[in-house]
Computed example of a mutant assay.
Amino acid sequence: MAPGGRMARWQRLKALIFDLDGTLYDDPELLAEYPRQAVAFVAERLRLPLDAARERYAGEAQRLRQATGQSPSTTRVLLALTGARLDEWAGFLADRVDPSRFLDPADYQWLRELLSRLRDHYLLAIVSNNNRVLAERILRRLGIRHLFDVILTTTESGRIKPDPSLYLEVADALGVRPEACLAIGDRLAVDIIPARRAGLQAVLVRTPQDLRRLGAELLAVAEERQAELRPG
């Protein structure tokens, strides 16, 4: 859809619901750490050598991809392969991943400024397949934790995207109807399709440049709304 058409549909938006990993930050080394740790978890859980665990993980990812036609999330592959609980995977990750090794706050000054401006006009929320401990570490490292009204992780929900009900849960917590929410994420199958199934509008962003452009469009919509409300 052309930007003009999208902006017309966004006139009644009240809330923006972001994915976290790969959307609000895109550090390739930190993003690669999740599948690396997933392989280590598989090796420990199934008592396999690391190379064998890597092959099992890749095979399960391929099986799920063929079954669904979409690339599965790291968490979905790991749970399907090991039968582990979400809290077990969360604890494993929290013990082994330190976002401060990867994320430089200076690189995300633009993000802090953009979200601060968006917060003047919209409620902001996150729905993430990450766990609460790591999500908090990442958000605080980026300097944006205080900007979000609702944060839903696997720790609270016990579920993972692409479950559409996660978006409904966040919309309800915000007190906003689903159609007045815009979901923003970097994965079509995991973020965008389930959000639309839940009745939200949704936009795919692949790069920081995409997010900057989207933010500019949303600010333009908000400023246009404000101008219309001013006495003539």
Rank of each mutant, 00 (worst) to 15 (best):
G4H: 08
M7G: 00
A8K: 06
K14D: 12
F18D: 01
D19S: 09
D21F: 05
D21H: 09
T23C: 13
Y25W: 12
Y25F: 15
A32E: 15
P35T: 06
P35Q: 10
A38R: 01
A40R: 15
A40K: 13
V42S: 03
A43H: 11
L50I: 13
D51K: 13
A53Q: 06
R54T: 08
E55V: 14
A58K: 13
G59D: 13
E60V: 02
E60R: 12
S71C: 04
P72T: 05
V77Y: 11
L78N: 05
L81V: 11
L81A: 06
T82M: 05
G83A: 10
A90G: 14
G91Q: 11
G91V: 07
R96M: 07
R101N: 11
L103V: 01
A106H: 12
Y108R: 01
W110A: 02
R112T: 02
L118S: 09
H121N: 06
H121W: 10
H121Y: 15
L123C: 09
V127P: 05
N130Q: 13
N130S: 14
E136Q: 12
I138K: 06
L139T: 02
H146F: 07
K161E: 11
K161M: 11
L166S: 04
Y167D: 02
Y167T: 00
E169L: 13
E169D: 12
E169A: 15
A171V: 04
D172K: 15
L174Y: 10
L174C: 09
R177W: 10
P178H: 14
E179K: 03
R187K: 15
L188S: 03
D191E: 13
D191N: 13
A195P: 13
R196I: 04
R196Y: 09
V203N: 02
V205P: 01
R206G: 09
L211I: 05
R212Q: 13
L214Y: 10
L219G: 01
L219V: 00
E223K: 08
R225V: 01
E228T: 12
